[in-house]
Design a protein around this nucleic acid. Structure first.
Lengths: 239, 239
DNA sequence: ACCTGAACACCGTTCAAGT
DNA sequence: ACCTGAACACCGTTCAAGT
């Protein structure tokens, strides 16, 4: 137990600040940021607030509601971030307008690495997700998209519209890239010749390894631009 | 407790079939398919096998190993499915070759709806995922891709290469599309004007609603083709 | 070698009781 | 109105003991 400045400590000295849904959810986000999403339990959340677990149930219905709530907090940050971004008007350049907002949204998720997993675990669509996509559609419409093509665009973009993707194939990012890669390739060379060739080539392209093995930001922007290209092409074709 | 034919019933009459890692994992997949992934607990899995929970630990290290194992079973099915698919040779037509395999892989995931969530929850990349992507790279290479562009392609495709996407914005698919949509739009019209316009248009395009509100298969193929288009364009440009 | 019962340290949640 | 302690029904997992 390392001493930290938590609400619990503060409350021991100050008169008790009453609990509220908002305070509960902000504490939940803080806890997930600090200790990981698996540490977000009702009991640990209560401790973070200097309160008993059962007190939480006066402000949130149950744990599912807490998870809906932390999604809400993160999406609230996203809405602020995309509002503040500097970008051309959608009427002038829909691509630049959308691209800038998506990359701004991405920044928020880089600060809450657990958030994609939580968002994808929700069974009902969060109203703020609808609000966000509503604005994406607005930008596409301003850019000359039909409702139909805008609909297709949402499906193509998927969570990438919010600035993140969940990849299944991630060449283990822990440790120094070069060492890891060398050891791994030795073992895998005969089983996975194409992957090994590909990764060897990627290392060669980036000999000093400062960008890491896969530069996520670069890959994200490459993929986003490829998709925006494809959408613009179909828009121009009037499909 | 509705009576079912489970291993437990069979074992009551037959001499005991010895447990094995393989039997444990196949039972886990069966349980997840029937009752959902949340029902896959060590205790319920043991019951499915007519055994005590603690017996499982002689065949799998822990629950994480069970989840790795069920991912392995599903990916095994994927490997078989893509092997059996009829498709042009990658040398002749990489796009058709890859497209057919991805759609075949997709079929497997349609039979295990919980599998995407499990795959995305794994912290270490499953070797069969690497094997699958190795074959994707082989197809791209046969189609004239540089290693570098093949690498980009994997990032653009992401889980779509395995035939699934996890969407955040899903206009609630329960109930009849028309009723749901009408009720929802009434409430949302002023808050989300663009989304509502888009969805109203989608309903209009498909008046008898037989395809459902969002035709997932159609949307998946549209998105896949857009991405394959973009990749081919960049390949031809020699980037 | 393989399986088991009891137990432990955790969960989310309910309930009756406190202030 | 808001918070609490004890309890319940679950988890995953350990351990010593059975066959």
């Amino acid at each position: 137990m390392t001493p930290r400045t938590t609400d619990a400590d503060e409350l021991a000295e100050q008169p008790r600040i009453p609990l509220s849904r908002r305070r509960v959810l902000r504490a939940a986000v803080r806890l997930a940021d600090r200790d990981g999403i698996d540490s977000l339990t009702m009991r640990q959340l209560a401790q973070e607030l200097g309160v008993e677990a059962m007190s939480l149930y006066h402000h949130v219905a149950n744990k599912e509601a807490v998870l809906d709530g932390v999604a809400e907090v993160v999406l609230g940050e996203v809405m602020v971030a995309v509002d503040e971004v500097e970008a051309p008007s959608p009427d002038a350049d829909w691509r630049a307008a959308l691209r800038a907002r998506i990359l701004a949204a991405r920044e928020v998720f880089l600060g809450h690495r657990w958030a994609p997993q939580v968002l994808e675990s929700r069974t009902t669509t969060n109203p703020l997700v609808i609000a966000y996509y509503d604005r994406v559609v607005a930008i596409l419409r301003a850019g000359g998209f039909s409702f139909e093509l805008a609909h297709r665009a949402l499906h193509v973009l998927g969570s990438r519209a919010l600035g993140f993707t969940q990849e299944l194939f991630r060449p283990d990012g822990t440790g120094t890239p070069d060492e890891e890669a060398a050891a791994l390739m030795e073992q895998m060379a005969d089983r996975f010749p194409n992957i090994v060739g590909m990764l060897a080539d990627a290392v060669h392209d980036d000999p000093d390894g400062t960008l890491g093995f896969c530069d996520d930001q670069f890959e994200f922007e490459f993929a986003l631009d490829l998709i925006l290209d494809g959408l613009e092409r179909r828009r121009a074709a009037g499909s």
